[in-house]
Computed example of a mutant assay.
Amino acid sequence: MIVDLPDTTVSQVARSLVKVREEGGAVALGRVLTLVIATSHGLEEEAIDAANDASREHPMRVIVVMTNPEGEARLDAQIRVGGDAGASEVIVLQAHGDAASNPDSLITGLLLPDAPVVAWWPDHPPAVPAESGIGRIAQRRITDASTRPFAADRLSTLARTYAPGDTDLAWTRLTHWREQLAAVLDQPPYEPVTAVEVVGSSSSPSTALLAAWLRLKLEIPVTWRYASPEEWDHGIRSVRLTRSSGDIVLERANDIDAHLSQPRQPGHDIVLPRRTLRECLAEELRRLDPDVLYGRVITQGWELLGPAVTGVTRG
């Protein structure tokens, strides 16, 4: 069910939500959190689709906020419940003019009572997420360094502005890579790693984050570089771990598979699919406490990591 509320107020939206829930038989019981999505017009549907999919694991209220400082003061809203909202209830707010000047005031009256708040900026996050109006309300704050703006110093900015509760989907996309590399190093021979090389696309901030994680965990210098677009055009390409017995190489072959080669062992293909937006969002919603490891990687690991060997600006 979709209900449009043109030129409305927050209080009218709240009353309409109760009415829609009562008439449609939908209930708020079991909603475990409120997810606030601050995004740009035209990009909201992809974020809503991801949230709807993730809501099957995390029933929640989703509030989508889009602001346009131009024009007359006006608030348009839309409520989605039932089949149009997965296991969540979705409130879409489009604020114009003066009504867009204080987006946190738009959502305060729509939050689930006594439930955690997670803020997600799919694009164009605030300069300091934890100090923004919406960020101050939230226990967790999710950004995505792979989306607009495509700033060369994006990771340096994340490191400089980090506060407990911050996380980034460029980090979440590394989960399977970190699992595979940790599993390899947990197998004999238990030799120290003496050198590391990480290669990935220049459009992938996950490349630098993986290098920073390895630098932090292995406590050795890590070489990382951006591949040319002809060599590799998106995501992480490969990781090489050097030990006295030889090199361990985990190299992606395509969007689904990777090849693992180790000394004195036959090489084999493993499933290493690229993670969807829904998978990354669902993972981040599983925890509402600060991600301590991410905090250490984006601050300590990033500080220890040297620049990319190609001379491309870090970030």
Results as ranks from 00 to 15, higher is better:
Val3Ala: 13
Val3Met: 14
Val3Cys: 10
Leu5Trp: 13
Pro6Lys: 05
Asp7Ala: 15
Thr8Glu: 06
Thr8Phe: 07
Thr9Gly: 06
Val10Asp: 07
Ser11His: 10
Val13Ile: 13
Leu17Glu: 02
Lys19Ser: 14
Glu23Ala: 09
Ala26His: 09
Val27Leu: 00
Ala28Leu: 00
Gly30Ala: 00
Val36Leu: 15
Ser40Ala: 09
His41Asp: 12
Leu43Pro: 00
Leu43Gln: 11
Glu46Gly: 10
Ile48Gln: 02
Asp49His: 08
Ala50His: 04
Asn52His: 07
Asn52Cys: 12
Asn52Ala: 09
Glu57Arg: 15
Glu57Val: 12
Val65Cys: 09
Val65Ile: 13
Thr67Ala: 11
Pro69Asp: 04
Glu70Pro: 01
Ala73Leu: 03
Arg74Thr: 04
Asp76Pro: 07
Ala77Phe: 06
Arg80Met: 13
Gly86Ser: 07
Gly86Gln: 05
Ser88Glu: 01
Ser88Val: 00
Glu89Tyr: 06
Val90Pro: 00
Val92Met: 11
Ala95Cys: 06
Asp98Gln: 12
Ala99Met: 06
Ala99Ser: 11
Ala100Leu: 00
Asp104Gly: 04
Leu110Gly: 03
Pro116Lys: 04
Asp123Cys: 09
Glu131Asp: 15
Ser132Asp: 12
Gly133Tyr: 11
Ile134Tyr: 02
Gly135Asn: 02
Gly135Glu: 00
Ile137His: 10
Gln139Val: 15
Gln139Trp: 11
Arg141Ser: 00
Arg148Asn: 07
Pro149Lys: 14
Pro149Met: 12
Phe150His: 14
Phe150Asn: 09
Ala151Ser: 09
Ala152Val: 12
Asp153Ile: 13
Leu155Ile: 13
Leu155Phe: 12
Leu155Trp: 11
Leu155Val: 12
Arg160Gln: 14
Arg160Tyr: 05
Gly165Met: 03
Leu169Thr: 03
Ala170Gly: 14
Thr172Pro: 04
Arg173Val: 14
Arg178Pro: 04
Glu179Leu: 15
Glu179Phe: 13
Ala183Thr: 12
Asp186Ile: 02
Gln187Ala: 09
Tyr190Asn: 13
Glu191Arg: 10
Pro192Ala: 13
Pro192Met: 11
Thr194Tyr: 08
Ala195Ile: 05
Glu197Ala: 09
Ser203Val: 08
Pro205Met: 10
Pro205Phe: 10
Thr207His: 03
Trp213Val: 02
Leu214Asn: 02
Leu214Gly: 00
Leu216Trp: 13
Lys217Phe: 02
Lys217Arg: 09
Leu218Thr: 10
Arg225Met: 11
Tyr226Ser: 10
Pro229Phe: 05
Gly235Phe: 07
Ile236Phe: 07
Arg237Lys: 15
Val239Met: 04
Leu241Cys: 08
Thr242Met: 07
Ser245Pro: 06
Asp247Cys: 05
Ile248Arg: 03
Val249Ile: 14
Leu250Ser: 08
Arg252Glu: 06
Arg252Val: 09
Asp255Trp: 07
Asp255Arg: 14
His259Val: 03
Gln262Ile: 05
Arg264Ala: 15
Asp269Phe: 06
Asp269Tyr: 05
Ile270Glu: 02
Arg275Pro: 02
Leu277Trp: 05
Arg278Ala: 15
Ala282Leu: 10
Glu283Gln: 14
Arg286Met: 10
Pro290Ser: 04
Pro290Lys: 06
Gly295Ala: 07
Ile298Arg: 07
Thr299Leu: 07
Gly301Pro: 01
Trp302His: 11
Glu303Val: 06
Leu304Arg: 15
Leu305Gln: 01
Leu305Gly: 01
Pro307Asn: 06
Thr313Glu: 14
Arg314Phe: 08
